[in-house]
Simulated assay, not measured.
Amino acid sequence: MPYDNSAVRRQDRLLDEARARELLAGSRFGVLSLVDGDGAYGIPVNYVWDGDDSLYVHCAPDGRKLRCIDRRDRVSFCVVGATEVCPAQFTTAYESIVLDCRARRGLPPGERMRALELLLEKYSPAHKTTGLRYAEASFARTEIVRLDVVAWSGKTKRVH
């Protein structure tokens, strides 16, 4: 999962990789952007990072998101960290990461269940046992999309 800030226009605003990894691991949601015919489709989603090269997103087994992925598997994923509008300075402090990914669906059952476990550990750690029972009961009605990261970069603006 190469972290590459070389294409970031403002080289004075690079987010270091360590902070980018913290954002990726700890953020609650990201925006998944896809191509939809001649247009674009962006949707906020919960996700989990496997700590390696992939993110997982869960959804229903049909819908616009999946139709887009079936047409074109190259997607973008954006996570925004801390932000603060600074009115007196006419700017905004921020930090964000953008990931270029390939979306994969039709994963093997074991990988799908492991992704659901990771999602439960992230979003419902105190209710994991109950969550696993729920995941097993609704497994046939749940799709898991794996986003394999091709490259990613990060940017920040600090305001004093």
Score class of each variant (00 low, 15 high):
V159N: 01
L34I: 06
V35R: 14
D70Y: 00
L55N: 04
E95T: 01
R158N: 12
K122V: 12
P2D: 12
V35G: 04
V57L: 15
A115G: 06
R71M: 06
V35T: 14
I69F: 10
H160Q: 06
L66K: 08
S124K: 12
W49F: 15
A93I: 09
A126I: 00
D100V: 06
V80K: 03
V159Y: 01
G39I: 05
K122R: 15
C78N: 13
R9K: 15
P125Q: 04
R19E: 12
L32A: 07
D53F: 00
M1V: 11
D38T: 14
P108C: 10
A103H: 09
M1D: 03
Y134T: 09
R10I: 01
R67K: 15
L23G: 03
D62I: 00
E111D: 11
E111L: 13
Y123M: 08
R105Q: 15
R21V: 06
V8K: 00
G106I: 10
E95Y: 01
C101D: 02
F77M: 06
V98I: 13
S138C: 10
T156K: 15
R112S: 12
P125C: 05
A93E: 02
R146K: 15
D16F: 02
A7T: 13
R112Q: 11
I144F: 03
G131I: 05
Q11L: 03
C59A: 10
S54Q: 05
S138A: 13
G51E: 05
R19T: 13
S96K: 05
R10P: 00
L15H: 05
R64H: 14
L66R: 11
S96E: 10
A20R: 10
Y123P: 11
L120S: 15
E95A: 08
Y134C: 02
A135G: 08
I43T: 09
D16P: 06
L32I: 12
D62T: 12
V149E: 04
H160K: 10
E84I: 00
L116Y: 12
S138V: 07
L147Y: 09
I69L: 13
G39S: 14
A7E: 10
G154Q: 08
D53H: 08
D16Y: 01
W49S: 01
A115R: 10
L32R: 05
S54F: 00
H58D: 04
K155A: 02
S54M: 00
V48N: 08
V98P: 04
D148E: 15
R133Q: 15
S54K: 04
T91I: 07
G63V: 09
L107A: 08
C101H: 07
A20N: 03
P2V: 13
N46C: 14
M1S: 13
G51K: 04
V57H: 10
